[in-house]
Design a protein around this nucleic acid. Sequence first.
DNA 1: GAGCGAGATGCAATCGTTGCCACATCGGAC
DNA 2: GTCCGATGTGGCAACGATTGCATCTCGCTC
Lengths: 340, 340
Amino acid sequence: MTQQIELESPRAVTLADIAREAGTSASTASRALSGRGYVSPEARDRLLAAAERLGYVPNASARTLKQRRSRVIGVVVSDLANQFYARLAAGVEQVLREADYQMMVLGDNTEDGEEVEGARTFLAMRAPGVIMTPAGSEATELLVSQGVAVVEVDRRLANVPCDAVVIDNERGAREATAHLIELGHRRVALLGVDTKWTTDAGRLRGYESALEEAGLRADDRLIVRIPRHAPDAEARIDAMLRAEQPTAIFATNNRLAEQAWRVLRQRGLRLPHDVSLVGFDDVPWMSMVEPGITAVEQPIHELGRQAAALLLRRLEQPELAPSVVRLEPRLVVRGSSGAR
Amino acid sequence: MTQQIELESPRAVTLADIAREAGTSASTASRALSGRGYVSPEARDRLLAAAERLGYVPNASARTLKQRRSRVIGVVVSDLANQFYARLAAGVEQVLREADYQMMVLGDNTEDGEEVEGARTFLAMRAPGVIMTPAGSEATELLVSQGVAVVEVDRRLANVPCDAVVIDNERGAREATAHLIELGHRRVALLGVDTKWTTDAGRLRGYESALEEAGLRADDRLIVRIPRHAPDAEARIDAMLRAEQPTAIFATNNRLAEQAWRVLRQRGLRLPHDVSLVGFDDVPWMSMVEPGITAVEQPIHELGRQAAALLLRRLEQPELAPSVVRLEPRLVVRGSSGAR
DNA sequence: GAGCGAGATGCAATCGTTGCCACATCGGAC
DNA sequence: GTCCGATGTGGCAACGATTGCATCTCGCTC
């Protein structure tokens, strides 16, 4: 209870301290603790004991400075509060941790400049690699030009060669749309994001190709592209519903699905009786609401794990040709999609 | 298209490089870029231009090594994939970013040792401060003993004095329980976590005191304490429901609420007709299911923001007495709680 | 015209770790 | 008895930014 708290933070224990304690030089201490180079068993034991006794914690900055690269992997996601990105980050962390790397997350690259800012931060820290869900190509290019390994995940935007892990968006969207068409729907609205991301493009393509296969024409008025963070997203969805009277909606991400769902509820429209709804990206609430929401399930955790694994592989073999891993989504049919 | 990619990563630009470029010494370059000390306007301009031209990125490790502290704040949360922690981290990041600090998240301190491991990582990086939702007291104590500022958030576990930001759990739980009692419930079950965390203790206390105020006795058989990550959580809840036939359930976190909800649905029990349900921590699905779940809403984002703000304050004024900020929760009544 | 302080700059040391190099020792091979 | 390779160890110079101190030049004051 009368525990004495040191107000002056004691200067941290250094290699020199434990070397002195064990009666060796700092070089030998370094070798003993890092396991590189020759050290006699006796010296090693003494040094390890001394390190333990003094509570030695190696100074990461000094090591990074000397070795010119750290063990911190940068991770940039668009929005940590969105379950998609949070689960992705969790997957990445698992694998990195096993390989004894640290993960440094920047959780919000919504504003364009921030992403480049983040890249600069990772350069400053001499991170050997960065994993990101890119918002633009600039950051990736900067990093790659400085010799940092980059893995793009979920979408691809870079104009320079780099590894990537993505979902087969086109196929997922095609299956979702085909499912609605099979149920008899002919007026299927698409809610998309107004970006140049490959996710959106792929999902749009899948939608269009499903229509085409069924001999239907895509109708531009049924396609709503909403900017990220648009405050009037729900109003736009509502307006389209009123104007176009689609019999089904395909929402291409979990946010849009939620917004569409809220609009439908507010309007008193019944799922699937009045309108059918299919989402892309299955999140927990979709299996909890009544009826459940039919959705394209993505292996998000695996997406993160693979991205980390790919990055680690590249760090070991920098000369490898860039590879793109494509993971398959899966349509989960629930009650929100019904026959017309 | 024929873009040449440098395979040998060019050694990064250093202060010495831009000093040479501008015809000054490295010292002057340092002063110009950091804004500390005298530099003539002309020299400054030349140096800034040179830095810009060469794409200078300061080496964070060198700076940290020399200054003996970094600008990285460690953040440790229990489970990034849980919306509670993800939103907390998002709040923290916002404030840190404004103050030009980096956030380093460790997203999973479920296993006891990992937390201490994380603390060691932050020590190695010479992080000036750490924010965490502690799982044990060891990590905090280690950090504090080494002069690192620590803010505990959501719960308090340390045996050493440190700042904290918490929710008034007792009050939230009391209100939730009182609400059920007012509706006529006499057999209110409590689903808690089997830990020594102050969150659980506070919520349990609130529950008990509400019962007491109403002249009721807490019945141990109605109190289920489930270990974190117990695989049989739903089975236990189910067993208690069958054995004790409570008329209402108070689930003290969002996971337990979800699990209870699933059990009720599976059993075909109707909310609130057969059983009432109130949760602690309002997450999106609770307002989406039908009926909506009555829940104690916590200002999570604010919790994160305050924790970061408190940490920043302490970094500026290390001598300040530790303070504990208590934020107020709010009961949101929805359809899942009804009259007995 | 001596003295002083503000303005501006560079030198050199330092932060803690690593790794190259030189040196020492010893057993064994020729 | 050399010579050699395998072991072990310590010295020393980096890595790149910062900073206390010394230095130097002005412009002023008295």
